[in-house]
């Protein structure tokens, strides 16, 4: 069964690169660049894992994580928060994210973390 990964980041470049890397690695990748759509997408898609940017306009990664981790239907989905500020790791873990990845990251790091949470 192909694992479904949802990537949400307002930066189109990162979404593109991460999409290419993970599709090459054999995942079913869905990408969105506007955070307000995320809840309906998660609902419909039921992804196996979510890669989430922390600082986004409208709804932040922090709020999204809090919400998803408080819903019975979604709380089991691993969430990895991605941010350029190492300082925000605490915030990410506090709101219930499963892991944190600092920008900029290596392709290997990305593949490794996705492998870890979809195994």
């Amino acid at each position: 069964m192909v694992k479904k990964i949802l990537i949400c980041d307002d930066d189109e470049g990162i979404v593109d690169v991460a999409g290419i890397v993970l599709r090459d690695a054999g995942y079913d990748v869905t990408t969105i660049t506007t955070s307000e759509k995320i809840f309906s997408v998660v609902d419909k898609l039921q992804p196996d894992m979510i890669l989430l940017d922390l600082w986004m306009p409208n709804i932040s990664g922090e709020e999204i994580t809090l919400h998803l981790k408080n819903q019975d239907r979604t709380k089991h989905i691993p969430i990895v928060i991605v941010s350029a500020s190492r300082k925000t790791e605490h915030i990410a873990l506090k709101v219930g994210a499963d892991d944190f990845m600092c920008k900029p990251f290596d392709i290997e790091q990305l593949e490794e973390i996705v492998r870890k949470y979809t195994a």
Binding site: D11, G13, I14, D16, V17, A18, I20, V21, D24, W55, S83, A84, S85, K103, P104, F105, D106, I107
Partner: peptide, 23 residues
């Protein structure tokens, strides 16, 4: 803090593309 975040974001993308090229 915001500027460095904004600078790092495209850097992440550049790094990603560079590594894709490498592959």
């Amino acid at each position: 803090s915001i500027a460095s975040h904004e600078l790092k974001t495209p850097l992440t993308t550049i790094k990603g593309y560079i590594q894709l090229l490498e592959k």
